[in-house]
Design a protein around this nucleic acid. Sequence first.
DNA 1: GCATGTGAATAGATTCACAGCG
DNA 2: CGCTGTGAATCTATTCACATGC
Lengths: 222, 222
Amino acid sequence: MPDRPRRIPEATVTRLPIYLRILSELGGERGATVSSERLAELAGVNAAKVRKDLSYLGSYGTRGVGYEVEYLLFQVSRELGLTQDWPVVIVGVGNLGRALADYAGFTSRGFPVVALIDDDRSKIGTEHVGLTVQPVADLPRVVVERAVTIGVVATPPGAAQEVTDRLVSAGVTAILNFAPTVLTVPEGVSLRKVDLALELQILSFYQQHRESAPSASPARRT
Amino acid sequence: MPDRPRRIPEATVTRLPIYLRILSELGGERGATVSSERLAELAGVNAAKVRKDLSYLGSYGTRGVGYEVEYLLFQVSRELGLTQDWPVVIVGVGNLGRALADYAGFTSRGFPVVALIDDDRSKIGTEHVGLTVQPVADLPRVVVERAVTIGVVATPPGAAQEVTDRLVSAGVTAILNFAPTVLTVPEGVSLRKVDLALELQILSFYQQHRESAPSASPARRT
DNA sequence: GCATGTGAATAGATTCACAGCG
DNA sequence: CGCTGTGAATCTATTCACATGC
């Protein structure tokens, strides 16, 4: 009996999706294996890190051989909770919100977009990718009826916290924030952010310090 | 004479833009000050962390008082290299690329989008936000003529590495990658990524582990 | 023999707690 | 007195290096 209940470090969690992607690209025939060395190369990280990361999931490799791609793929998927769908609602149907709604990778990878929300009069009732834009007031009903667990916030910064509060009180327990604002959520709600301006400013820092400090560059792989 | 040459930790660099945003929102009258405690609250972090982060820039606070907002704002800006513009080229003019090109925050915050690149026949020559879409072959000229330093990769995953190589050989020294692929760049080139699927999968992990481990949630603030 | 799995060593980031100074 | 600035303590993550077992 494998001993499951290890606590997976946050840093490891952020890398699991990368391994997942690489494994699914490797695909290959049944029984194909991959070494930690090779996986590490493809993921742009250290091989020991790959082994330690994977060891948190269990002992899924074979000494002297490596990891069976298909089996490991399944185990990583399961650990990430990707054996089920997680319906998503997108709030804010501006340029970014629409681009996100269009993004096929969302739905195809287990995150079906089931509703679009916006309080702009001129947008309510319009259609995108087969969905009718609904007002914020519809959130409680939509969240319950469509079993929404993840809310994507793509509103202007001024509206983001209020929208988040509404999502949370409607029952959403995970938020992905694209608005350039610091959000606060209650204990127990997961929060991740994607901030374009912030990423550019980080790059700007390293540009700025390029001449003065020749090797002051950030991580070389993604 | 303030002693400049401290090496700023990467973790600190990623937080400077957050402080910057908060400081600029605080704005306020000339001479207004803010304490590390208050800054920390607004940034959703620990006050000691704020002080340590800011101390890497120099000694810009006043004991018993706090930090002068306007002065600190300038110092953080300067450290991030935001006292100058960093022209950006966007490669890949799909939904996401267009949304990025439209995103006013880019240009207004010192990252003017000076060119749009795509190798799709049907897109070359079309216009967006006053820019004509150009082929990849134009990169070397555009990068030199427009002094481009940052390349945004918004292509499908299959094209991302090739496009990146072209950007780098054209002279671009910082890459922001939106394609769901691991990119490799030469030593000395900065690389950051924004990966939507990855963020959703991380949230999925914490959703999955919600019942079983009540307090296994990630960072609560952004 | 060979690649995993993991203790031990190291490096890095966060937090504590308080001395120092306006 | 109050808040910064920072050594020291702690916690987290990474890397090394090798015993383990297929």
